[in-house]
Amino acid sequence: MIHKITITLYNEEVAPRFDLATEVLIMILSKGNIIEEKKTIVLPRSSADDLCYLLLSEKINTLICGAIEDEFFQFLKWKKIDVYDSIAGDWSRAFHCWSKKTLKSGDILSRRTVEGINV
């Protein structure tokens, strides 16, 4: 069975804001979370409404994103999309955690440094 996952992007990271994301990564996964297809869509403008429409038209099962307004969060949940929100860090790390079933909403996955020193 295939599974479609979307991650909103800000360079190599999960976009901090869902409504301001202009780039999304869509991956089609087969059994065992093997990536069958991977595409990046660049949106003409940032819009939470347009993004929701895109997720529905692409029949996405899971969304990994940063901050999202409750209205859109509830809407997507109602549309039976699994939403992992408030995720911070590299998208690849977020995807890795999701595939290992350890990802939770609110996870900060980025390296923590202060003045260049790991903390």
Binding site: Y10, P16, R17, L20, A88, I108, S110, R112, T113, V114
Partner: peptide, 19 residues
Amino acid sequence: SMAYGVQCYNILRGAACIS
């Protein structure tokens, strides 16, 4: 402690941070 060492745009999550 949640925010310590994290990029500010992931904590403040302001529109101005992105644009």
